[in-house]
């Protein structure tokens, strides 16, 4: 069969989302950020919210998210994305407001903002990328780093006695009354990506319906920071991250 018979628009099954532009992404090869960006772009297009969405970008690798998705963005100071999202959503209640934060941003410097925004039940969606280290600055230990995990600032492995164990932000947030959705997903296989897409869609719908705060934690890889190939990083994540951060819904009302 001729290739030209297959390659025509009516046979199209998958393409780069329309809201993602042609800018070359600065992420390392195999980084989970790209997949999550794509999923967000697809969901916004599907819900027809491109004129109504305001994304709050964090400090971290995703600081340049505004360059890749053609929606409105605002840049928050480190960790302050939920506070900024609160203001945006309260001033413009008809918009869909989401924050996109890493674990260094959400679970370390922004712990207070995140917990209080969730406790107030702000109608925002929080996309939380958890890769267990500070990826952008060179793989330092983060609150979510696993026990005995080697990072550039814990060369002998994280010592639980002196630095505590991995912080389970999602479990803490799920206890709060203001939270309507707390779920943990991943993007390492096609099936997982489809599940992530469903949960992010639900989170965005909750934001528009005024049901409360939705948190979608994406257990991710940082293959450059973990010093592995993208494939090995995915396997390492399944073996080591999933037992500590199990995939699934903690709360969905």
């Amino acid at each position: 069969m001729n290739v030209n018979d297959i390659v025509n628009p009516e046979n199209l099954v998958y393409a780069k989302p329309a809201l993602m532009n042609e800018n070359h992404m600065h992420y390392c090869p195999g980084c989970s950020h790209g997949v999550v960006h794509k999923v967000i772009a697809e969901v916004i297009k599907e819900l027809d919210l491109q004129e109504k969405t305001i994304g709050i970008a964090p400090v971290g690798c995703a600081v340049f998210a505004y360059k890749y998705l053609n929606i409105d963005w605002q840049e928050a100071a480190h960790g302050r994305a939920p506070a900024l999202a609160t203001a945006v959503k309260r001033l413009l209640p008809d918009r869909m407001v989401f924050t996109y934060q890493g674990d260094g941003d959400l679970a370390a410097i922004g712990t207070a903002e995140t917990i209080h925004a969730a406790n107030r039940g702000e109608n925002i969606a929080i996309i939380f990328i958890n890769n267990g280290i500070y990826g952008m600055t060179g793989g330092q230990m983060a609150p979510t780093t696993l026990s005995n995990m080697v990072t550039s600032t814990s060369p002998d492995g994280r010592n639980v006695k002196t630095t505590g164990g991995p912080l389970k932000m999602l479990n803490m947030l799920a206890l709060l009354d203001g939270v309507c959705l707390a779920t943990r997903v991943s993007v390492h296989t096609a099936t997982a990506v489809k599940k992530t897409r469903r949960m992010i869609k639900l989170a965005f719908e909750n934001s528009m319906a005024g049901k409360g705060t939705s948190i979608v934690e994406v257990v991710s890889t940082c293959n450059a920071g973990w010093k592995m190939t993208p494939e090995a990083a995915n396997n390492w994540m399944v073996e080591n991250m999933f037992p500590v951060f199990p995939i699934g819904d903690l709360k969905n009302i």
């Binding site: 998958y14 780069k16 980084c31 950020h33 790209g34 997949v35 794509k38 990506v193």
Partner: peptide
């Protein structure tokens, strides 16, 4: 679905 850079159609 798994391509992080959206290069696949």
């Amino acid at each position: 679905f798994v391509c992080p850079d959206g290069c696949i159609t």
